[in-house]
Design a protein around this nucleic acid. Structure first.
Lengths: 222, 222
DNA sequence: GCTTGTATTTATGTATACGTTAATTCATTG
DNA sequence: CAATGAATTAACGTATACATAAATACAAGC
């Protein structure tokens, strides 16, 4: 069986594909902490040369997901439960800031877009389709990041957001988290419409807190 | 004249050296926004092959310091005044969090270390040696980041801190910012000693705000 | 004279080859 | 039998070679 990467999407480079691939494998837990990643072996498995693999692994090292020990391969560090907790504490502050800044920058078009996401979310919440819900949640937050008008804040949050995907995916699968999340998005949207910065910040902070509360109160509910 | 990189420090790889080199050149403004970086040309100038240069440039791209346009080289994006403002707003929140978390984790040894940094800072403040002062300030903040006990927070802050070095360096050169900065560090240290989390957060937030106020009130004082 | 198409140049993306260093293994000796 | 040392192996770091694709320049046709 070939494990070759998909080459169809030629818009993005191999090193990017390899990087995204490994990163998602680590975040999903396929590569567990302590596992070692060997450039040559991985290159063979993916059907590419060492070059793009090297570049991908180095970026993983810079991002703190692996630690390269000399001649023994890169060992996976991964994301601990504490890391997730810390990320939510950081996001609570920064997403609040993003929401506050976004208030004065959001255009009518973007607000319409957010509304559309909420509508779709309600639809998929009824169908219990978490896959689609997760994607919509991503787009919602991404839109707010970009609407903040801050390159640095956007970069920082985009990075942090990725790390908590699996935790969030499992969390959103629980009880009424489906609709609760949508409700919180709608509250935020309302604050955006009223151009109420304080309310927007509060709504976003609350949303992040609730998401985390849900995760810790349902540990390992997979 | 040879522009070759220093090869003496063999502890760090070439790609790392090249990366740090370009990054500092961008942050210092030697490479201005709009300038293009050509892998081949740069490799020649530095006296290395394209491989380490490639890997360095890609990391710059991921960090948002350059944008690679196809076949036209990587164009330097750089740090705008707004970026600096945004970074200080973010740091204000996150360094406050770091200080709060550090309170319960700081060991006696680390507090002694912080005290030593303050002592030295006072010495160099009198001598008006900003070079050394900047280094000490780095170490002070770095220690707090690490004492926060959070890998994610440390990573995030370390990254943000680098971008504002030149602005800060120029800022610290102004009027009584020398001693003011040291005084603020001492106030923070006092809060650490008393294990007062609220006071530590407040002192750190204040310190970051003051540093930024100083920058904006003395624009382009170079 | 302007536009369009083609050829050449140029720069990046990928692969491979080479050098170096650390880890492991095996043999030899005390 | 254990310990030490040399040789082999394995993995990374760097350099170079090759492939590809875009940009530019030049020429031909309208």
């Amino acid at each position: 069986m070939s494990k070759d990467l998909d080459f169809s999407g030629s818009d993005t480079s191999l090193r990017n594909k390899v990087f995204q691939h490994i990163k998602s494998q680590i975040i999903k837990g396929v590569y567990a902490p302590g596992d070692t990643i060997l450039e040559t072996k991985l290159a063979d498995e993916l059907g590419v040369s060492r070059t793009p693999v090297r570049e991908a692994v180095w970026l993983l090292e810079v991002e703190g997901l692996v630690e390269t020990t000399s001649k023994k391969g890169a060992i996976v560090v991964g994301i601990s439960a504490k890391d997730v907790a810390d990320i939510f504490a950081i996001r609570q502050l920064l997403e609040g800031l993003a929401a506050r800044w976004a208030v004065s920058k959001l255009t009518e078009v973007e607000i319409k877009e957010l509304q559309k996401i909420c509508d779709l979310s309600e639809f998929y919440a009824q169908k219990r389709d978490m896959e689609e819900l997760a994607k919509l949640d991503d787009r919602f937050h991404q839109l707010v990041y970009e609407a903040s008008g801050s390159k640095m804040l956007n970069l920082t949050l985009k990075n942090l957001h990725e790390y908590v995907q699996p935790a969030r995916l499992h969390s959103i699968n629980i009880e009424n988290r489906f609709s609760a999340s949508v409700t919180e998005h709608l509250a935020l949207l309302e604050a955006f419409r009223k151009k109420d910065a304080a309310a927007a910040e509060k709504a976003m902070t609350h949303h992040v807190i609730m998401a985390y509360e849900n995760i810790v109160s349902h540990p390992d509910a997979k």
